[in-house]
Amino acid sequence: MHESLTVIGIILIGMALRSCRRRIFRKIGALVYLLASGTVVYFISGNIPLSIASIFVWFFLPWIELGTRVRKLRLPLENHLNEERSPRLQQFPEAAHNIDELETLDFEHSSDYSWDWAGSAQHYSFFWHPEERTVVTVCLCKQTNVAFSYVTISSRACDGKIYRTSNFPFSSTLKNSPAVAWNQIACRHCSLEQSLESHKHFIKKKGGSFDNLMMPDPDILNEEVENDMRVQIRHNLDTGIITITDNGKFRYSFRGLCFLWKQFIKDMIRLS
């Protein structure tokens, strides 16, 4: 009973910390859960090194999916956006809020496109603001029973540099091309207006200037996304993250699987 009550007590402490508002306490709560799993192994085996090793096993669990589903993925080298009507937003309340805020900030809706990527249906609603020289994309994602939305803010400089700010909740599954400067912000950013301020500050931090930004062309926003994806795929081919298959598609190399594993670990730490 003593061992069981000890484990239950540790788990309850972890639950209490995970329910806190401050992020640091939630992260400590995740570590307490790991401690609970190590304690269980120690009580069963009486072996301290084994109990410590069991904690680190959690960080290698992503290899189960990497070695089964991801390793078998075959993705197209060329992917084209299809124009479609804006979907209903009942499943995406955060997206509806963002669109309302964009209209308040005088952003103009340009177009709606979608494509399928790695088994995920992705819809893009493009908004642009000529004075801000900025494009905001409200992205809706559906994969099996999971649905979520995020926002990406983009500005393009005359020298080819692309500045992006996004609250995409996961790390990128491909390396960004050298021309892209990526600014990751919290999933639950206070407001879109604050996200835009963060984007402007990020451009200045990277040595860019507003005067050097290009005016967006609302008629070719989908073509820019397609071209950016081609450039990114080409960069990942050059760096060995992906390789071309016999049927003209690409798959992740072993180096690419290791890259994805590091991205999984970053998400585990960041989202905990």
Results as ranks from 00 to 15, higher is better:
residue 3 E to C: 08
residue 4 S to T: 15
residue 4 S to M: 15
residue 9 G to E: 05
residue 15 M to I: 12
residue 21 R to G: 13
residue 22 R to G: 05
residue 23 R to I: 15
residue 27 K to L: 09
residue 28 I to K: 00
residue 29 G to T: 02
residue 30 A to P: 05
residue 32 V to F: 04
residue 34 L to C: 15
residue 36 A to E: 01
residue 38 G to V: 03
residue 39 T to R: 10
residue 40 V to D: 01
residue 41 V to K: 07
residue 42 Y to H: 08
residue 42 Y to D: 09
residue 43 F to G: 01
residue 45 S to V: 11
residue 45 S to N: 07
residue 47 N to R: 08
residue 48 I to G: 07
residue 48 I to L: 14
residue 49 P to D: 09
residue 49 P to W: 11
residue 51 S to Q: 07
residue 52 I to V: 13
residue 57 V to Q: 00
residue 58 W to P: 08
residue 60 F to Q: 06
residue 62 P to G: 06
residue 65 E to C: 11
residue 65 E to K: 14
residue 70 V to N: 12
residue 71 R to C: 10
residue 73 L to D: 07
residue 73 L to S: 06
residue 82 N to C: 07
residue 82 N to T: 13
residue 82 N to K: 12
residue 87 P to H: 12
residue 92 F to R: 05
residue 93 P to W: 09
residue 94 E to K: 11
residue 96 A to W: 01
residue 102 L to F: 05
residue 103 E to H: 13
residue 106 D to V: 01
residue 106 D to T: 02
residue 108 E to K: 15
residue 112 D to L: 14
residue 113 Y to V: 02
residue 114 S to L: 11
residue 116 D to P: 06
residue 118 A to Q: 15
residue 118 A to V: 11
residue 122 Q to V: 14
residue 123 H to T: 06
residue 124 Y to V: 10
residue 127 F to Y: 13
residue 127 F to T: 04
residue 131 E to A: 14
residue 133 R to W: 04
residue 134 T to M: 10
residue 134 T to H: 00
residue 140 L to P: 02
residue 142 K to N: 14
residue 143 Q to S: 12
residue 147 A to L: 06
residue 151 V to Q: 06
residue 151 V to Y: 05
residue 156 R to Q: 07
residue 158 C to P: 00
residue 160 G to C: 00
residue 160 G to W: 06
residue 165 T to M: 04
residue 167 N to T: 07
residue 169 P to H: 03
residue 171 S to N: 13
residue 172 S to A: 10
residue 174 L to W: 10
residue 175 K to F: 12
residue 177 S to M: 09
residue 178 P to K: 01
residue 183 N to A: 05
residue 184 Q to E: 04
residue 186 A to N: 14
residue 189 H to S: 12
residue 197 E to Y: 11
residue 197 E to H: 13
residue 200 K to Y: 14
residue 200 K to E: 15
residue 201 H to W: 10
residue 202 F to S: 01
residue 202 F to I: 03
residue 207 G to W: 02
residue 207 G to S: 04
residue 210 F to V: 11
residue 213 L to P: 05
residue 213 L to H: 09
residue 227 N to V: 03
residue 227 N to L: 13
residue 228 D to S: 09
residue 229 M to W: 12
residue 233 I to L: 04
residue 239 T to S: 15
residue 240 G to F: 03
residue 241 I to D: 00
residue 241 I to F: 04
residue 242 I to R: 01
residue 249 K to G: 11
residue 253 S to L: 06
residue 255 R to A: 07
residue 256 G to S: 03
residue 257 L to I: 03
residue 262 K to P: 03
residue 265 I to T: 00
residue 266 K to T: 12
residue 267 D to N: 09
residue 267 D to L: 03
residue 271 L to K: 05
